[in-house]
Amino acid sequence: MTARPDPAASAATDTAAAETGRRVVRTMRRALRWSLPEILFWLVAFASIFLLPGQHLILTEIAILAVFALSIDLILGYAGIVSLGHAAMYGAGAYAAGLYAIHVTGEPLTGLVVGAAAGAVIAFATSFLLLRGGDLTRLMVTLGVAAVLFEIANKAYRITGGADGLQGIWMDPILGRFDFDLAGHTGYVYCLIVLFLLFLLARLVVNSPFGISLKAIRENPLRASAVGIPVNPRLVAIYTLAGAYAGVAGALFTHTQQFISLDALAFQKSADGLLVLIIGGTGYLYGGMIGALAYKVIQDVIANITPQYWLFWIGLLMVVFVLWGRDKPQRIFATLAARLRHRREGRE
């Protein structure tokens, strides 16, 4: 004898399920809503186009660094993968965009796509090695992949220019209208818009069910797989997406500098990106941008005091920052924000 489901009870379960569903949708939408600080941040960013016309060259560098750090945030802040070789994808994007500009066309927008594709292909191909073994293996694999690409770019000097760098890149105007100028105005607006669009996409991705499943994997891969999250495919997907982002950052570098050196693939590039992100804080997307700004300001200040041995100061910065507690700036902001919100709610 089989138990007949009671129609009334089943209807109740249905409404309860529907209610839960609605609540989930509401919670997820809330994360997508724009808060005041976020709107202010982007207003200030776009206002810099008009307010700081003399600083556009360094602001371009900051924007590119921010795209690169955003890419690292996707894998480190959301998926918890520590990478020592993110320059691999950055360099791949840079060289791909450079070679495309030399041999095919100097049109920048398709160049961006080529750069993104190059980064994504490298990331996708190497992601399968990442899935094997633990954190130590990941460090080694990412480091190794970047080292291999560096060696290839160094050895294949007929194609890449080797240690002399890739020269002779000429870019066409963007959309056929906006020419890259020496003062870097076009370049900055171009990079800022690309950064903004990539940020919007990343914001959608990390707040989607996909992004939330990544956080679950970061917190506990075993439990994540127990509740039915396909851990490995998700990691491959986010690593590939982050690779595309890094590729775009590389392509932006190529387009605005019109020169690529082996530095784009060097270990220092990866370490820089990691440091930038850590300065700004991981896991909330703005870390890369705030970090890039802070990093360039610090670099500028130190370069004014002592132009040599930048590497030493950057090392010291990393050591002190970690010893002091790298989440402290973020925590201070969080406490301030909480206090503000508290006061506002008290007034209402």
């Binding site: 930048w310 590497l311 920052f321 790298r326």
Partner: peptide, 22 residues
């Protein structure tokens, strides 16, 4: 965490590298 250890020791490497250069 692993990340802290990675950053900390990379910082040490950078200091050693440029310190020895100096």
């Amino acid at each position: 965490s692993d990340l802290d250890q990675v950053l900390f020791t990379i910082g040490l490497v950078f200091m050693a590298v440029s310190g020895m250069d100096w």
